[in-house]
Nucleic acid binder design. Structure first.
Lengths: 279, 279
DNA sequence: CGAGTGGTTGATACGTATCAATAACTGTGG
DNA sequence: CCACAGTTATTGATACGTATCAACCACTCG
């Protein structure tokens, strides 16, 4: 029930490679990671272009966090790492694999609010009330490092652990804000933004920028993008394919025209985007 | 240009009352504030019922923060406290009045991502990158205390200021997650959730639970609720009024049937809520 | 091979955006 | 003090995007 996650495309090796303690990020991590908000001052707000999903952090920070980890934990595909409501003990640094974070809705449905990949920290929403505010489920076999939050909070010494935590949380807030902007876009814009974002994050981990494998279902994507039905997600993929922006084969994605995709989500706002010009 | 914020209804005094240093919260603040996530474990997720907007904090915490404030600042209605992109120096504790937080969109539009009232802290999204990630605009004449973030970060001693900041940020994250759940609701559910939330927050500040004055426009509300047009907001108010759930007079709101309002947002999910039962 | 899960596609219904006209109110300046 | 302009809100008509329902296919797993 978890066998299709081995990459089939030769262009990108699997991240399951031996996890070297203290540096799980294949390549590129230093410069260019920090500024996800454009430094332009009264900017016109290219949040969507800039928006980066769950907190990616530098190798040095990862090492610092890793040093406080008490154990590794493997989570099989479809298993959950923690459930919402559970007492909060650890934050988890993803070593390999992919997690989805979700909230249960009153009616039994679920809302996906994030996907976490290697080098990202999950569980920070539990700090507020000492209980996990969301659940984390593995979308493929995944390995995490468990870091006792109490350790982080108490950590003293030259490493400004407190500051790191604060920055990571703030980044999560910024990310949520950017994500909220998706509600202004229609299906095509949302999916385009999502794909470009995934592409960048995977690329930062050493995969191809143009070709990758989705680890989540259409339903997950739709939920994450703000209550789109899985059918709409599927149809939107088909549209992109017809327009030759993508090649889609179930979960294999090949981005053909990156620029056009970018235009899609810069153009497909509900009202303003395409109407303002002629005013 | 800012004259309609004086309460007209006799049932609730204006908060502009003399700001007593060290305790701006009119009443009720201690018990019952902390748990905004239901402690039930594998819960069915009443996030929407529980969801609390920007970080409200206890009087003691407010006092601790206030002690670090370097100055007060008055912001006239429609003026902005800070713009996105500006260098980050202060977080602001709202003393009186109301702020809206918003992001500029690439096309010139704006997306409202929060409203802040007395006792709430704004600016935490700037910690991530040292620049404000959103703009704060006064919806009425507003007064804030400016607290240098550097002070907070360095604060030592018995007061666990770091922990407080961490909890506040985490709470903001939880709040964002809850807010994201609104995307699963339709117009009526979203507006109902919004009104009930406002009602509770105002009530915690000593106002009537059933009657209050909106400080934001229909457009602001629509934007905040996820890209609803101002017309839809207006129409939804009318619907509630016809159903005798509310009395609406421009920005004066009188909640007649609180329970029914609650049912509205528990019922008006897109698919699951009303369909699951018969499966 | 049958069951289950995930994905695609079509027909249709519904919710809401959009466009438009009007009204109430606010602040401004003669 | 009143007329004018600008904002805000209400309401109706219509168009459009997407949810929903349904049928079918592909693939995996036991």
């Amino acid at each position: 029930m978890h066998s299709d996650h081995q990459e089939k495309s030769p262009s990108h090796a699997n991240v399951e490679s031996p996890v070297v303690p203290g540096g799980i990020l294949p390549r590129q991590a230093g410069p260019g990671m920090t500024p996800a908000v454009s430094p332009t001052s009264g900017n016109s707000g290219h949040h969507l272009r800039e928006y980066s999903l769950p907190s990616r952090i530098g190798d040095d920070d990862i090492a610092r966090l890793e040093s406080l980890a008490v154990h590794r934990r493997k989570v099989r595909s479809a298993q959950t790492l923690y459930h919402e409501g559970e007492p909060f003990v650890f934050v988890y640094l993803v070593r390999s694999g992919t997690l989805k974070s979700s909230l249960a809705m009153a009616d039994g449905g679920e809302r996906v609010n994030g996907f976490y990949m290697a080098g990202e920290l999950t569980g920070l929403d539990a700090v507020a009330y000492g209980r996990h505010a969301s659940s984390a489920t593995a979308l493929e076999d995944t390995e995490v490092s468990a870091i006792p939050y109490a350790q982080l909070a108490l950590a003293t010494g030259n490493t400004d652990m407190q500051g790191l935590i604060a920055r990571l949380m703030s980044r999560e807030i910024v990310r949520e804000h950017s994500h909220a902007l998706l509600s202004q876009l229609r299906a095509e814009g949302r999916l385009a933004a999502f794909l470009l974002n995934l592409s960048r994050r995977l690329n930062a981990r050493g995969y191809s920028l143009s070709e990758f494998h989705l680890r989540m279902t259409r339903a997950d994507i739709g939920s994450y993008l703000g209550g789109m039905s899985l059918e709409t997600v599927s149809r939107t993929f088909s549209i992109f394919q017809q327009q030759r922006l993508l090649e889609v084969n179930a979960r294999h994605i090949h981005i053909i025209d990156r620029d056009a995709l970018t235009r899609v989500f810069e153009t497909h706002a509900y009202d303003d985007a395409w109407r303002k010009p002629e005013r």
